[in-house]
């Protein structure tokens, strides 16, 4: 099966507080019906995602990130992975259960499987305990992040004023 030009992956666990936010945004994007776009929701952004990168021009990941100074709960950041000067912290390859997005992207890159463009939407949260509810601040930002991704993706596809430029659609 041919992959679409764009794959969007909402990552996280719905039973672990703010970790659910990537899934929530992914669910909201499903309702947006973006053209030529495949949307996946996953609890385990592991090596299997590499197969979903094949032939894809733009790969979008949405995931919760631990809040840090300057990035409080409820804030978010778009990361252009190929031009990112910071660091996606890894689990040091300790465990396949602890395998992180960072390792999946690094492995894909080394195998030459990383799509030309990779965007990560990191949504900062503070509460990740098993059984916790997502925090209000993190959930409140879901519509904003959804709209931002919808905007960025439609721009990428060459859609203006809601109308698709057909020459850009593969």
């Amino acid at each position: 099966m041919r992959n679409n030009r764009i794959t969007i992956v909402g990552c996280g666990r719905t039973d672990s507080g703010d970790d659910a936010v990537g899934i929530r945004v992914g669910e909201a994007l499903v309702r947006c019906a973006l053209p030529d776009t495949r949307i996946l929701l996953t609890e385990w952004p592991g090596v299997d995602l590499i197969a979903d990168m094949e032939g894809v021009e733009l790969f979008v990941l949405i995931d919760a990130a631990r809040a840090v100074p300057g990035h409080p709960p409820g804030s978010w950041e778009k990361i252009d992975y190929r031009n990112f000067s910071g660091t996606l912290l890894t689990s040091h390859h300790e465990s396949s259960h602890g395998w992180s997005i960072a390792e999946t992207l690094e492995l894909a890159d080394r195998l030459g499987e990383l799509p030309p463009r990779v965007w990560i939407y990191a949504i900062f949260g503070a509460r990740f305990e098993f059984g916790a509810q997502p925090s209000e601040a993190t959930i409140a930002v879901v519509p904003e992040v959804t709209a931002a991704i919808q905007h960025d993706v439609t721009q990428f596809l060459g859609i203006e004023n809601g109308k698709l430029k057909m020459e850009n659609v593969g």
């Binding site: 672990s16 910071g86 660091t87 996606l88």
Partner: peptide
């Protein structure tokens, strides 16, 4: 041994 929660750790420079 067990399963663990997955979330993204980002260090900005």
């Amino acid at each position: 041994i067990s399963c663990s929660v997955h979330f993204l750790n980002v260090k900005f420079e």
